[in-house]
């Protein structure tokens, strides 16, 4: 691989833009196709399909046997609530390769001492979230139990089409949340996108176990039918 191609790949990834590298495996010839230029490429159809599936693979083409390396942005995890569960969820998320950001306007919670290695923003969601450029490759988790913090963040996550949206709270708490958010103009289809009660049903009790249940559910959304890749194919 030529160094300039590698450099361009790294730049696109840093900017959270998808790219495809087309390699002729017989000759070693190689080129880079940015997602924005995919429609104009001679292999537009194949590249478009691979981008939607977020899947690398070998293809037989009129131009010979080529390998398409697909790079889509790495997943991010945005959490409202610098709470006990977040202290476990953030490092688990980081271990799984997510860029993790916690938003909590309550400065007593959002302290460096409690979260030494995580980006914590001690602001209200309406200030903290827009600059994060939350996108389809983002998982969003609401953990504060406080509607003043969680509700506006959930509205933002739904608007930005996050591949996973989960909210902490019992069925009763969630029913009240549904009533509030519907009054704010959300549809039943929007509400169906919020996972609540949050996490896979593994009988989690401790904050760390709940974090595992949440991360399991996020992984399921990312990797299985109905997850991020599948959804972008439908769109």
């Amino acid at each position: 691989m030529k160094l300039d191609i590698l450099h361009a790949v790294n730049e696109e990834r840093a900017a959270r833009r998808a790219v495809v590298i087309v390699t002729d495996v017989d000759t070693g010839a190689q080129r880079l196709v940015k997602a924005a230029d995919a429609g104009k490429d001679s292999l537009a159809e194949l590249i478009g399909k691979r981008l939607r599936m977020a899947k690398s693979g070998m293809e037989e083409t009129a131009q010979g046997r080529v390998f398409l390396t697909v790079h889509v942005p790495s997943p991010r995890l945005v959490i409202t609530g610098a709470v006990h569960i977040s202290q476990a969820l953030a490092p688990i998320g980081q271990l799984l390769g997510y860029d993790v950001t916690i938003v909590d306007p309550r400065t007593a919670f959002a302290s460096v001492e409690r979260f030494p290695d995580v980006k914590v923003i001690a602001e209200w969601p309406d200030v903290a979230l827009p600059p994060l450029n939350v996108d389809h490759y983002t998982a969003f988790v609401a953990l504060t139990h406080d509607p003043k913090i969680d509700d506006p963040a959930l509205l933002h996550a739904l608007k930005r089409d996050c591949f996973y949206i989960g909210a902490l709270g019992s069925r009763k708490t969630h029913a009240k949340r549904v009533t509030r958010l519907k009054e704010a103009g959300l549809s039943d289809a929007d509400m169906a996108r919020i996972r609540a009660p949050i996490g896979l049903p593994i009988g989690a009790v401790s904050p760390a176990e709940i974090a595992v249940a949440i991360m399991g559910e996020i992984t399921q959304a990312l990797r299985t039918k109905g997850g991020a890749a599948e959804k972008s194919e439908a769109a």
């Binding site: 160094l3 590698l6 450099h7 790949v9 790294n10 990834r13 790079h71 790495s74 390769g97």
Partner: peptide, 16 residues
């Protein structure tokens, strides 16, 4: 810490 895909490609660029 486990290396992520972009860390690997970044390392390739940096090493070169």
């Amino acid at each position: 810490m486990l290396a992520r895909d972009e860390d690997i490609l970044k390392a390739a660029e940096d090493w070169r």
